[in-house]
Amino acid sequence: MENSISGDDYIYQSGFGNHFSSEAIAGALPVHQNSPLICPFGLYAEQISGTSFTTPRSHNLFSWLYRIKPSVTHEPFKLRVPSNRKILSEFNDSNSSTNPTQLRWKPADIPDLPTDFIDGLSTVCGSGSSFMRHGYAIHMYTANKSMDNCAFCNADGDFLIVPQQGRLFITTECGKLKVSPGDIAIIPQGFRFNVDLPDGPSRGYVAEIFGTHFQLPDLGSIGANGLASPRDFLVPTAWFEDKSYPGYTIVQKFGGELFTAVQDFSPFNVVAWHGNYVPYKVSRVLFKYNDYAI
């Protein structure tokens, strides 16, 4: 485990690409085993993978999560009604047209109707296909309400979230992230997360990549001390919620479509975890001091 860093009431581990470990209750992590016959405290062991099983060790991404209840104990997924038709993940339509006119993005207006992070997503541009596992999409988001009794999971790719206005309190299966304007948060493919708005309305940008993961650029002529420093990347520490709900909704994005499944417990019931496939955040301000800009 790397050094712990406290940000108000949030505690983080630092590093990029490290193998981290964290437990909210001492002794919750199995010793010398990933999936013992009986896990400590009767927890269930689950692995989440960011690469194929046979990927070489130097590029293999995975984490083991130890949770109170298995994540698969939910009702079957169904198409979400109403869906969000402003989200796109397929950009290979041969009938689509392009326009050579110069275009400029401007901040989207905060909606008048109650809108959370999911319904506030809107695709600006993209390339490739989520089904083909190649390409990217650029979205904007506007939201004026927190996600209540609801979690989002992107099965298409990684999300890189850049708030432009208003802080985001993001709860993930690995713990909590506090993301302010000037910060960047990365939620890898497959992780469930919830977005709260502590300061009211928020808006910003989301970059999504298919079939790969965000990486640091290689060091070059600047040398060992250039570019982004791995210690500036912050990973959450374990936090769990042992709570029952009459109808907690999981919204999953798959092929640009939204699907929902209902369960009777919080998805954020991971008491301990270890691995190198995790959500994280970094402050853009730090890049100014490393001769690197995003």
Rank of each mutant, 00 (worst) to 15 (best):
D218F: 03
D218W: 01
L219W: 01
G220F: 10
S221K: 03
I222Y: 08
I222C: 11
I222A: 14
I222F: 12
I222R: 08
A224P: 07
A224V: 09
N225K: 04
N225F: 06
N225I: 03
G226V: 08
G226T: 04
G226Y: 12
G226Q: 09
L227F: 01
L227E: 11
A228C: 13
A228W: 03
S229G: 09
S229E: 07
S229L: 09
S229D: 04
P230D: 04
P230F: 11
P230M: 06
P230N: 02
R231H: 12
R231F: 00
D232R: 06
D232I: 11
D232V: 05
D232E: 10
F233S: 11
L234C: 11
L234D: 12
L234S: 07
L234Y: 14
L234N: 08
V235C: 05
V235N: 12
V235G: 04
P236K: 01
P236G: 02
T237E: 10
T237D: 00
T237F: 03
T237K: 14
A238M: 05
W239N: 11
W239G: 09
W239Y: 13
W239R: 14
F240L: 12
E241Q: 14
E241I: 15
E241C: 15
E241T: 08
E241F: 08
E241N: 15
E241D: 14
D242L: 07
D242F: 09
K243H: 15
K243Q: 12
K243C: 02
S244D: 13
S244R: 06
S244Q: 00
Y245K: 00
P246G: 01
P246V: 12
P246A: 09
G247V: 04
G247E: 15
G247K: 15
G247M: 09
Y248W: 15
Y248R: 14
Y248G: 07
Y248F: 15
T249Y: 00
T249Q: 12
T249E: 12
T249H: 06
I250S: 03
V251Q: 15
V251R: 14
Q252P: 06
K253N: 03
K253H: 09
F254C: 11
F254P: 01
G255P: 01
G255H: 08
G255N: 13
G256S: 01
G256W: 01
G256F: 04
E257Q: 13
E257K: 05
L258S: 13
L258D: 14
F259Q: 05
F259A: 02
F259R: 05
T260F: 10
T260H: 07
